[in-house]
Simulated assay, not measured.
Amino acid sequence: MASQLNPYISFSDNARQAFQFYREVFGGNLTLSTFGEFGQTEGGDLIMHGALETDKGLHLMGADTPPGMERREGSAITVSLSGDDPELRGYWDKLSSGGTVTMPLEKQMWGDEFGMCVDQFGVPWMVNIAGDSAPKQ
């Protein structure tokens, strides 16, 4: 297997809901393991490891912050989606719905359509649709 780079996001007791939302956005196969499944009684139903893998080759991983560990809101990570796949616009629509658009998805000076949002779970996203796939304005 070739090397992969996977975003890994820490959540605050809502990883299950976040991953179910991301599966609705991207589709794919979702696996969730709880702390309880590995014998930990504290935080038993919290997600120890979650992984979403799509048919398009997208990978997203994450977990709830373990009990007793500190978590700071996610300004240290932004997940970037880019390419020429027409599905990128649908991903944008779903990710930004219920969240906050920090930069509207619009044609940029470099010829692509680009936007930024923070989803309903506080995770920042950037979406860049390549110029040939971006709608003409």
Rank of each mutant, 00 (worst) to 15 (best):
4 Q>P: 00
5 L>D: 00
5 L>M: 14
5 L>P: 00
7 P>Q: 06
8 Y>Q: 07
9 I>L: 15
11 F>I: 10
11 F>Q: 12
17 Q>D: 15
17 Q>H: 04
17 Q>R: 08
17 Q>S: 13
19 F>A: 04
19 F>N: 05
21 F>S: 10
24 E>V: 03
26 F>C: 10
27 G>T: 10
27 G>L: 13
27 G>K: 12
27 G>C: 11
28 G>S: 04
29 N>V: 09
29 N>D: 15
31 T>Y: 00
31 T>H: 08
33 S>I: 13
34 T>D: 11
35 F>P: 03
35 F>V: 02
39 G>Y: 06
40 Q>A: 14
42 E>H: 03
42 E>A: 15
42 E>K: 13
44 G>I: 01
44 G>F: 02
45 D>I: 01
46 L>M: 13
46 L>V: 00
47 I>A: 13
48 M>S: 13
48 M>N: 05
49 H>I: 00
51 A>N: 14
52 L>F: 03
55 D>E: 15
56 K>P: 00
58 L>P: 00
59 H>E: 07
60 L>Y: 08
61 M>Q: 15
62 G>P: 09
62 G>D: 08
66 P>I: 06
67 P>S: 14
68 G>T: 08
69 M>N: 07
69 M>C: 08
71 R>M: 14
71 R>P: 00
72 R>G: 10
72 R>A: 14
72 R>I: 12
74 G>Y: 07
76 A>H: 12
78 T>K: 09
79 V>L: 11
81 L>Q: 04
82 S>E: 10
82 S>F: 11
82 S>N: 12
82 S>W: 08
83 G>N: 03
87 E>W: 01
88 L>D: 04
88 L>F: 06
89 R>Y: 03
89 R>I: 10
90 G>L: 06
91 Y>A: 05
91 Y>Q: 02
93 D>H: 10
94 K>A: 14
94 K>Q: 15
97 S>M: 08
97 S>F: 04
98 G>V: 11
98 G>F: 11
99 G>M: 02
102 T>R: 08
104 P>I: 00
107 K>S: 15
108 Q>T: 15
109 M>K: 07
111 G>V: 06
111 G>N: 06
112 D>I: 07
114 F>E: 03
117 C>W: 00
119 D>R: 03
120 Q>H: 08
121 F>M: 05
121 F>R: 05
122 G>C: 10
122 G>H: 09
122 G>A: 10
124 P>I: 00
124 P>W: 01
124 P>C: 04
125 W>Y: 11
129 I>C: 07
129 I>L: 15
130 A>N: 11
130 A>E: 14
131 G>C: 02
131 G>V: 00
132 D>A: 13
132 D>N: 06
134 A>R: 06
135 P>W: 05
